[in-house]
C-alpha cells in the first residue's frame, strides 16, 4: 500500500440508497472511497459530507472506525458541489476521493468533475487503487470493464472517483459509529435552481427493445410473427473421442474471443 501518512486526504461521502428498499444507507462507492482513504493514511483521513448532520446513515460511515466526520450544513435544495468546492479550495488537501455516482438525488456523477474543474486539479476517474505515492506523484490503478486495470501516473494534488472495483469497504461497527463526533459546520448555501425545476418520480420500467421487424409485405409480417424462437437446447456431443470434444469447446472459446 502506498505510503501516505503525511498526506491530507479527504473522502467525500453522500447518503446512499438501497437499490431494493430505497432505504438510506452508506453509499457503496463512497464507502470504498473512505476505505481507500483509511488504507492510505489511517484515521487521519478527513471524511466530509455536505448536507444534514442528523442523517442517520452518516453513522455507518463513522462506524468504519472514524473518530470524527465533518458535515457542511446544507439544506435539502442546496447545491452541495458548490459548498464542497469552496471548502476544498479553502483547505487544499492533497487527494480528494469521491464515489463515481451518488445513489440518491440526481445521480449525475458530476461532483468530481465540477470539483476538479473548480480546483484546477487533474481528475482520475474510476480508480480501483492507489498503488504508490512517491515524490509528489501517485501511481493509480484505474478500473476498466471486465476486471481489467490501467496504470496512470499523476502529480498531487488530484481528485479521484472510486469505482466499485476498489477494495470493499470494511464492516461498519455500531458502537464506534454511535460514539463518533459528527462536527456540524454551518456553510453558505447555494440554491440549486435547475434542480428545483426537476420532476422526480419513481423509476418506470423501461420497455425492453424488441427485435425490430421492418416488414414490407403482409407475408413478411406474418412470418415474423409466427417465427419459431431461436434456441431450444444447444449442441450435445456424445460418444466422440475426447480430443474432438475438446476441439469443439476450444473452437467455441476462439469464436467468442475469450482466449488471450
Amino acid at each position: 500500500m502506498a505510503n501516505a501518512e503525511h498526506l491530507k486526504i479527504v473522502a467525500l461521502v453522500s447518503v446512499g440508497q438501497h437499490p431494493k428498499s430505497g432505504r438510506a444507507r452508506r453509499a457503496e462507492q463512497d464507502a470504498r472511497a473512505v476505505e481507500l482513504g483509511l488504507n492510505l493514511c489511517g484515521e487521519k483521513v478527513q471524511v466530509l459530507h455536505a448536507g444534514d448532520v442528523a442523517e442517520e446513515s452518516l453513522r455507518s460511515y463513522a462506524g468504519m472506525g472514524l473518530k470524527q466526520l465533518r458535515v457542511l450544513q446544507q439544506a435539502a435544495g442546496a447545491d452541495a458541489s458548490v459548498a464542497l468546492g469552496d471548502y476544498l479550495s479553502e483547505h487544499l488537501p492533497d487527494i480528494v476521493l469521491t464515489g463515481v455516482r451518488a445513489e440518491s438525488g440526481e445521480s449525475s456523477g458530476m461532483t468530481p468533475y465540477l470539483l476538479a474543474e473548480k480546483l484546477g486539479w487533474p481528475l482520475v476517474t474510476r480508480i480501483a487503487d492507489i498503488a504508490r505515492i512517491e515524490n509528489g506523484e501517485a501511481e493509480i490503478l484505474q478500473a476498466l470493464p471486465r476486471g481489467q486495470r490501467r496504470a496512470i501516473r499523476v502529480r498531487l494534488p488530484f481528485v479521484a472517483s472510486v469505482d466499485n472495483a476498489a477494495a470493499a469497504p470494511r464492516q461498519s461497527a455500531y458502537g464506534p459509529g454511535r460514539r463518533a463526533e459528527l462536527e456540524n459546520l454551518p456553510w453558505v448555501e447555494t440554491a440549486d435552481e435547475v434542480r428545483a425545476a426537476f420532476e422526480e418520480a419513481p423509476a418506470r420500467k423501461r420497455p425492453k427493445r424488441l427485435k425490430m421487424v421492418k416488414a414490407k409485405t403482409a407475408a413478411e409480417r406474418f412470418k415474423a410473427a409466427t417465427a419459431k424462437s431461436q434456441g431450444g437446447g444447444g449442441r450435445v456431443i456424445k460418444d466422440q473421442p475426447p480430443h474432438e470434444q475438446a476441439q469443439a469447446i476450444f473452437d467455441l472459446l476462439l469464436e467468442e474471443g475469450v482466449l488471450r
Binding site: K20, R23, M64, Q171, A173, G175
Partner: peptide
C-alpha cells in the same frame, strides 16, 4: 460485531441487508 466490525464470511453483508431490507438476503 458491534465494536470491531469484524463479522467474518458473509456476516457483514447479511447484517447490512437486514438493516436495509429487513431480510438477510437483501
Amino acid at each position: 460485531t458491534l465494536e470491531k466490525g469484524n463479522t467474518p464470511g458473509k456476516g457483514a453483508e447479511t447484517l447490512d441487508n437486514l438493516i436495509a431490507t429487513d431480510n438477510p438476503n437483501g
